[in-house]
Amino acid sequence: MPEKVILNEEDIRRALTRVAHEIVEKNHGCDGLVFIGMRTRGVPLAERLAAEIKGFEGVEVPIGALDINLYRDDVFSVDWQPPVRPTFMPTDIMGKSIILVDDVLYTGRSIRAAMDALIDFGRPRSIQLAVLVDRGHRELPIRADYVGKNMPTAFDEDVEVRLKETDGRDEVAIIRSD
């Protein structure tokens, strides 16, 4: 399977730095911000964004981890269930501005599940979406507020985000299945 690296370690770092600034700019500071990383790779991404913000604003934004498996719309059409991991909310999310963080935005179905899950914990003031890669092919009316890299892809291609915390190195690759 031919594979093409689109973003390297430096590209990812720059994209995240820009996204971190955009988040603070759009929210006029960090008041009421909460990062919620979607398991698995959204969590380290959320931690990196929070670290960036700590660097230039000096503020610690709380970070949570969300597992969406119990909210999937394909629970009965897969022949084995993906492992569920605990969800962790760092604070009461009532009235907070939630920045949902994921690695790849594709059909939008995970984001739909994540929003349903979040609302079970309370009524946030807003939910915004930050992704490292938007690869297109939406199946639901969902869009990202912050995008590291827009990456047009074909259906038969796979986008793989690899992060040091989970995969040992930082890169984003497109894999063609032929």
């Binding site: 909210y71 492992p83 605990p86 969800t87 349903d116 079970d120």
Partner: peptide
């Protein structure tokens, strides 16, 4: 082990204020 790791996640659900998820 898989049952136990899944149960860890379920325990979190069971400790929520609204202890219900739409899975089944």
């Amino acid at each position: 082990e898989l049952v136990f790791e899944t149960a860890d996640a379920m325990k979190e659900v069971f400790q929520r204020e609204i202890k219900k998820v739409p899975t089944l």
